[in-house]
Nucleic acid binder design. Structure first.
Lengths: 133, 133
DNA sequence: ATATGTGCAAAGGGTTTGCAGATAT
DNA sequence: ATATCTGCAAACCCTTTGCACATAT
């Protein structure tokens, strides 16, 4: 799922963000899918550019959340980042210490039910702790 | 919803925990309902016993989670504690900065669906960010 | 030209740990 | 009697902040 630069550059520009090498590297990683903590992002992006600092990773991820490209949730004492897409379930597998996506269970009706109660939903996090096969 | 001591003492004893004044105070507070951060618990219990320490609050809440009386979830950079009961939705109201319980939306089928996929569910957290009426 | 981003070091906030003295059983 | 709990201080993350320099527009 390797993205070309143009796609990422256009995405960043569409959010009125300056396009820096660091942002391209970080954004490409997150767009490839999965869930990442800051440390995991830092480790990965340092393989491409060892001089990237942890502040920049924090800044960039928080910026990408703010403009709506990413979403974040808290678990295991840390913040996790992933691409923003339809609501889905994140299963934290306590045996393997991984996070598993469950995208084929529809959650949109939760938003609907909450709207009926007068809640204007901004984000839904379903975080399950369990043992995975 | 004031509980008498016997009820709390029996609950703690049933989990093989030593019954201390601090544990009684903290457990009574949590059993009265609602969601609490450590700081909120500390503030409340200090009204009853000003010498209670923050370590004891941490120790007690984590112990109560471990034995299954409480459950915890992470949001807003903190850990929140509440009584363990049926799965429900916690709405974080960004306007009022409160947490609202939605208990009348059934979530048990999420557990069922995940079981079909081979996931042994231990806990389900549904955390919604939104604006409340 | 200038507004914005980067990287460093320091500070901040929440949580855990180690340990001596106290307490419940 | 002894295993456990409490409270204090220190240590330990994770995350944010302040600021000088660098860079994208």
């Amino acid at each position: 799922m390797e993205r070309n630069n143009d796609e990422i550059v256009n995405l960043l520009r569409s959010k009125k963000l300056k396009v820096t090498p660091q942002r391209i590297i970080i954004t490409r990683l997150l767009l490839s899918g999965g869930h990442y903590t800051i440390d995991q992002v830092l480790n990965e992006v340092k393989k491409v550019d060892p001089s990237i600092s942890i502040s920049t990773v924090y800044n960039t991820l928080n910026t990408l959340v703010k403009v709506g490209i990413l979403r974040s949730f808290e678990a295991e004492g840390k913040t996790w980042y992933e691409i923003r897409r339809e609501f889905h379930i994140n299963v934290i597998c306590e045996n393997s210490r991984h996070i598993m996506d469950i995208a084929d269970i529809d959650l949109s009706w939760i938003e609907e039910e909450l709207r009926k109660k007068g809640v204007k939903v901004k984000d839904i996090n379903v975080i399950v702790h369990g043992d995975c096969p």
